[in-house]
């Protein structure tokens, strides 16, 4: 198989001519400067962090652990998300729930956000809609430990206002005979 290729030779620096390029660039800058100066309302730039942009609800940002109707964590600690996670950043400790109806639940659920690649595979693997990627993305932290989200933060952080409810309900499923 023959490969077609072309050798590109760059002009030596003293033979290059920049003036046109500089002028075009400046023209664009000036255009936006003047447009924004006289028409502040339509300015695209935000004064972050005073002003914030809200992404759509479908944005795949920080994880949320959903809750049941009674407010308890929906997760059953099946570890399918942890198994599916390509970054290996989910750590779950399962335990026996006092109620036989629940049987198994997580006593700890941690996501190392610095390792997470936001692929959404955990969400896809979950059989009971217990984990979702939410629209939040502004999550600064002062040190590595603050990026280790624990179960409380994932399910009940203030911005979730008491928790997001899962669409899969065991009691209803049980009633319909599944």
């Amino acid at each position: 198989m023959s490969v077609n290729y072309k050798t590109v030779v760059q002009k030596p620096a003293d033979k290059q001519w920049y003036l046109l390029g500089i002028a075009t660039g400046l023209a664009i800058t000036m255009k936006h400067l003047l447009k924004n100066l006289f028409n502040k309302k339509d300015m695209i730039t935000l004064n972050y962090p005073e002003q914030k942009y809200d992404y759509s609800n479908r944005f795949k940002g920080n994880h949320i652990l959903t809750v049941k109707k009674d407010g308890a964590i929906r997760c059953t600690a099946c570890m399918l998300c942890a198994t599916n996670c390509p970054a290996d950043c989910i750590t779950i400790t399962a335990s026996e729930h006092p109620s036989a109806e629940v049987e198994k639940y997580p006593i700890s659920y941690e996501i190392d956000m610095l390792r997470c690649v936001f692929c959404g595979y955990c969400e896809e693997a979950c059989p009971v809609d217990a984990i979702r990627l939410g629209p939040e993305w502004q999550t600064p932290g002062l040190n590595g430990a603050e990026f280790n989200y624990d179960i409380k933060h994932l399910a009940y952080r203030a911005s979730l206002k008491g928790g997001v409810q899962s669409v899969v309900d065991d009691k209803e499923r049980s009633k319909s005979g599944i």
């Binding site: 099946c78 009971v128 599944i178």
Partner: peptide
């Protein structure tokens, strides 16, 4: 039952 996620045998 559909227990595989919480079933130790899975």
């Amino acid at each position: 039952p559909l227990d595989c996620p919480i079933c130790d045998q899975a």
